[in-house]
Design a protein around this nucleic acid. Structure first.
Length: 603
DNA sequence: CCCCCCCC
């Protein structure tokens, strides 16, 4: 039987902070530490044949080896991953060795006895502390430079970073808190506030990834402020001293039983040199937009496209939760000649500038199915990148800038009121002739039309000032306004627009109604300005309203039959207006001409 | 300690 040789004298070097690759040591004893609560930890007396260390610990993911009887007395092991760390107040206490990966070289039953006469390493002679040039082990001195961004004098952190030894994310658990991970941020939420029966506060969360796995981390309140700016998607960080707790799988799709919470102790340090380490890049499983049609509802989608159209920023109050949300729908097109609607939320929606028609890369967007169509929504854990510097993006840019997106034929998303791309072109006369609006659901179409008459009468009403209520208020006199819906009296109100106008295309004229936001867009003034002008300044009102006359727009119209008493009227409501995109409108006209005449090439 | 993402 051949026994492995121990790395004689190596414990003195390791315990003075030197990095030694794969030392071979002998276990002389192992026992369970009586520690608090549910944690299970093992302390080891370990020897290199010359020195011993009685302050060695097993990282808890190795407990299973002890359970299996693999770490008995006299076992020879190779340490594959370990850190040293000072424990005790202010780092002034004892240095311990924490072993997170090891390989059994010879089982204790084979070895049968203690090798050498090891003594404590603390009195080790100088020659044992200097790295040996001829040593078979691969060693290098500890880097002396202080890490940048070190926001805490943290010994575990520094020694781990300097030694290059960090813990895999997959090994983290609530039972072991001496760890440092090196992880890439794959997504980061905005700052969110909450207020409920248990209190209020703010937070942001992030997803972290290394070669072993992924985990979600959340920073609340002070930590939210402290770390929000430092944490950036795609960057790699050393992170230590977070609390771990079981993940609530209901809310997380990440593959980890635990999640982390930043604490006052948490240390985060940017890792700027990531060229040759194994932290994987974020992987994008890009699918062509056309493929989304065939995917399951709620499935996650990574894709890339050009933002061909941008919707207005919209605010609404969720019916069930009463929370206010901001969103913006944009339309992506790609070389599969397909278009899909993507919903942005919160800050992404507010700050989005789509007028330059950027390339949009998304990861982890969710499919929402509606009316047989599918759209994407950028939810928690999703990432959006604007004009990413990747070959696919440059290819798309070239395609689109050469007219590639002008004749997109395949609409993956359903026709919607607000959505624009999928609305069918139709003349006002055809809308009548085809009995649009006579079904159970409204019909939608778009046309190019000129504004002929705008009515100033009843162009506004005084509405409840509550942000989530637009109900007309009753003037009680004495500057008091009653909202029946909110059952409350207010000293003020807000103006809401309800613009009726006659528009015409080359086939006929129709009266249409426009609600507040569209009205503001058409008149170029806020509802407050319009309301005040109509009430107090007729000349100004005339100026505002007449400016709209004889202007042309692309109107997206909702068409529905409505019953008033015994009368049924076919009603048109303006869903949105947009300036005329002549390039695109002409494409439509050419297509119509070709269909009418049968003359012309297919492009 | 959050965990909401509507409507059509």
């Amino acid at each position: 039987m051949v026994l492995a040789s121990l790395s004689t004298g190596v414990i003195a070097r390791i315990m003075h902070g030197e990095v030694v690759d794969a030392p071979v040591l002998q276990i002389l004893a192992i026992k369970k530490i009586n520690s608090a609560a549910d944690s299970e930890r093992y302390r080891i007396l370990i020897s290199d044949g010359k020195y011993f260390n009685s302050y060695a610990m097993l990282a808890s993911q190795l407990n299973v080896m002890q359970h299996n009887g693999e770490l008995e007395e006299f076992t020879i092991v190779q340490l594959d991953k370990y850190v040293t760390s000072l424990v005790g107040k202010d780092g002034a206490g004892k240095r311990v060795l924490i072993i997170s990966e090891l390989t059994v070289v010879n089982p204790g039953a084979e070895v049968k006895s203690k090798i050498g006469e090891p003594v404590t390493y603390e009195n080790a002679a100088k020659q044992d502390l200097a790295p040996k040039p001829a040593a078979t082990s691969n060693s290098k001195p500890v880097a002396k430079k202080e890490p940048i961004h070190n926001n805490n004098n943290n010994v575990v952190m520094n020694s781990s970073i300097n030694s290059g030894m960090t813990h895999p994310i997959s090994s983290l658990s609530p039972y072991q808190n001496k760890w440092v991970i090196k992880a890439r941020v794959t997504s980061k939420s905005g700052i969110r506030t909450w207020s409920n029966a248990r209190g209020e506060g703010k937070l942001f969360s992030m997803d972290l990834m290394d070669e072993s796995g992924e985990i979600r981390a959340t920073a609340f309140k002070e930590q939210c402020d402290k770390f929000y700016d430092l944490i950036q998607v795609d960057s790699v960080y050393y992170i230590s001293k977070c609390q771990l707790k079981p993940a609530n799988k209901q809310y997380s799709s990440l593959n980890n039983a635990y999640e982390m919470t930043f604490s006052g102790e948490t240390v985060v340090q940017l890792c700027e040199d990531t060229d040759d380490d194994p932290i994987p890049e974020i992987k994008y499983n890009l699918v062509p937009i056309s493929d989304v049609s065939g995917m399951e509802n709620k499935a996650a989608v990574d894709t890339i496209g050009i933002c061909k159209e941008v919707g207005e920023l919209q605010s609404f109050v969720a019916r069930t939760t009463n929370k206010e949300f901001k969103k913006r729908d944009i339309t992506l097109v790609d070389m599969s000649n397909s278009a899909i609607s993507l919903t942005l939320w919160g800050d992404d929606a507010v700050n989005f500038d789509g007028h330059v028609q950027p390339v949009i890369l998304v990861k982890g967007t969710r499919i929402n199915e509606f009316n047989g169509g599918k759209s994407l929504s950028l939810g928690g854990g999703s990432i959006m990148k604007i004009n990413p510097d990747i070959p696919e993006a440059h290819k798309l840019r070239g395609w689109f800038d050469n007219g590639g997106g002008d004749s997109v034929a395949n609409m993956v998303s359903a026709r919607t009121g607000g959505g624009s791309f999928s609305t069918e072109w139709m003349t006002l006369k055809d809308a009548r002739a085809r009995n649009l609006g006579s079904g159970d659901k409204p019909d939608y179409f778009q046309c190019k039309a000129v504004v002929h008459i705008v009515k100033q009468e009843n162009a506004f009403y005084r509405a409840c000032p509550q942000s989530d209520c637009n109900k007309k208020v009753v003037d009680e006199g004495n500057d008091q306004f009653r909202c029946e819906k909110c059952n409350a009296l207010f000293p003020n109100f807000k103006y809401r627009l309800l613009i009726n106008m006659s528009i015409g295309d080359w086939t006929s004229n129709r009266w249409v109604s426009s609600f507040n936001e569209v009205g503001e867009q058409l008149l170029g003034h806020t509802s407050q300005e319009v309301g005040e002008a109509l009430e107090n300044d007729p000349a100004k009102a005339e100026q505002i309203f007449s400016a709209l006359n004889f202007t042309s727009h692309i109107f997206k119209l909702r068409c529905k039959n409505e019953v008033y008493g015994d009368m049924t009227r076919n009603k048109l409501t303006v869903q949105s207006v947009a300036p005329i995109n002549h390039k695109e409108y002409n494409k439509h006209l050419l297509k119509e001409l070709q269909e009418l005449t049968g003359i012309g090439s297919s492009n």
